[in-house]
Design a protein around this nucleic acid. Structure first.
Length: 478
DNA sequence: CTATGGCACGGATT
DNA sequence: AATCCGTGCCATAG
């Protein structure tokens, strides 16, 4: 969609350069998943573009970049542990996880993000529910789990399961409920809405969920997904500010697409829920997944192989004449432009990640508390690009950290994350329920100066109850 | 009276 | 120019 917009400009008003800029900007703004779509569309209607099949590294099975050797295996053996390998990695397999039973990732790619448990999704889930299932429920569970789509949603109707196994819908629902409470929380839900609700349900058992979250999802999901906060506030009879908190909470703690995120992390005992998002645009992990090894940063550029101008098309172009040639020439230019723009996008993303990795390395390795304060403008300055370039490059993108959490890239610029992390630890270790003023003082001892009012805000962001309520909750039985 | 949440303002950031 | 964020002031609940 976005692309056709800039194409319009290309044809009419174009000095090529302005089209180039327009398209570069819009590409930069896209997430990897969106870019993949765009490329597919373009491939299907532009004969000048072609894909040459992927090449894989014989050592590690990783897809190779356009030219040159494998960015990981070709590194000298004597790398210092604090070095970082950073490269643009063309791949699309990552986005087409097939959840049906028996399928698995290529076995020659040991570092697949999802295979950390060496299980595929259905097996992984089944291993969790199995103990809770009655004998006659098992075939139902099996059928459900083998019919998940790539996002982890149930891809068949309940009645089909009923018909197949000759059972009542209630039976199926029961099993489904059990499954949805398994680790990618909300897996096998029938909609985003149902998945989110399941997660809220689960979280509210162990942690405090801000009010209106549940109602916003169950009653006004339309408005919520369209980010129509003012409207939403009106309908629920509350303020916009509250709704903002709600939306913040949802994006921080819930995951609309169960199967896309990291499994294995969601259930943590003390309500310390990791942020969960969908497919990452950048992956960061240790070489061979061994902590302490150099970091590897893969910037995912989606493609089903390497994109290039078709030599056959070029040849054919020369033999054409007149109008037809004009027509084809346009296609060729367009294709050429797209390729250039993608390269530029990759280049920008690489530079950006280089900076981020350098500055936020301790955050990446050691977690929230070590996040350095940083603004997009600073990065822009270092790279000598306009700040809006960085904004676009960061917007809507996600990064997978070595601990398998997937976070929005904007987290690298979050001014309050580190403080909130300290606040959390203060409250975890408190010996009596500290009120906001005391928390404020405690933070000050650690060299953090924030207003009492701000403490209250952070607290509610973290879904932590106020002191007088915590007193009851935490210390009641003691 | 104290602790907390709502609202609104201003400065920083995008 | 629009948005986000921290903060101060005030109302209110306990």
């Amino acid at each position: 969609m976005k692309l056709s917009h800039s194409q319009g400009q290309l044809q009419s008003q174009s000095p090529l350069i302005s089209a180039h800029i327009a398209q570069t900007m819009s590409l930069l703004y896209m997430t990897s998943a969106e870019l993949l779509q765009t490329i597919d569309v373009e491939l299907s209607k532009n004969p000048a573009l072609e894909v040459i099949p992927e090449r894989r590294c014989p050592m590690c099975g990783r897809r190779l970049p356009e030219n040159g050797p494998c960015p990981v295996c070709s590194q000298p053996k004597t790398m210092e542990p604090d070095e970082t390998i950073i490269f643009v990695s063309p791949r699309d397999d990552f986005y087409t996880y097939n959840g049906s039973a028996g399928s698995s990732y290529d076995t020659d790619r040991p570092e697949e993000p999802f295979s950390s448990e060496n299980l595929d999704l259905p097996t992984y889930v089944l291993s969790q529910v199995a103990p809770e299932l009655e004998k006659e429920e098992r075939p139902l569970a099996a059928m459900i789990l083998t019919n998940l789509d790539e996002d982890g949603f149930l891809a068949i109707e309940i009645r089909e399961i009923c018909r197949f196994h000759h059972v009542t819908p209630e039976k199926v629902e029961t099993v489904l409920k059990k499954i949805m409470r398994c680790d990618p929380l909300g897996v096998a839900a029938r909609s985003v809405q149902e998945a989110l609700l399941t997660q809220v349900e689960f979280l509210s058992e162990s942690t405090q969920v801000p009010e209106f979250v549940r109602r916003a999802i169950s009653e006004e999901f339309d408005l919520l997904s369209k980010h129509q906060y003012s409207e939403l506030a009106k309908k629920l009879g509350t303020s916009i500010q509250k709704i903002k908190l709600v939306s913040h909470y949802i994006s921080e703690n819930l995951n609309p697409f169960p199967a896309r995120a990291n499994w294995g992390n969601f259930r943590q005992p003390n309500g310390n829920t990791p942020d969960v998002f969908h497919q990452p645009d950048v992956m960061i992990y240790y070489l061979n997944n061994k902590p302490g090894n150099p970091l590897i940063i893969e910037i995912i550029t989606p493609s089903r192989g390497t994109l290039r101008l078709s030599p056959l098309f070029k040849k054919a172009l020369k033999e054409q004449t007149g109008e037809q040639q004009e027509e084809w020439k346009k296609d060729l230019d367009k294709a050429n432009l797209l390729i250039k723009c993608i390269q530029q996008r990759n280049n920008t993303m690489r530079q950006l990640m280089e900076q981020l990795a350098a500055i936020q390395k301790s955050y990446i390795i050691q977690g929230d508390v070590h996040l350095q304060s940083l603004t997009r403008a600073e990065i822009a300055d270092k790279l000598g690009v306009h700040e809006s370039t960085i904004s676009r490059a960061v917007a809507n993108k996600t990064v997978q950290l070595p601990n398998k959490k997937i976070i929005p890239m904007s987290t690298f610029f979050d001014r309050s994350l580190a403080v909130r992390a300290v606040l959390r630890s203060i409250i975890e270790n408190e010996s009596h329920a500290l009120n906001d003023t005391e928390i404020c003082a405690s933070l000050e001892e650690r060299g953090i100066n924030v207003a009492r009012r701000t403490v209250a805000k952070y607290r509610s962001m973290e879904g932590i109850l106020p002191a007088h309520l915590r007193k009851l909750e935490k210390f009641a039985t003691a």
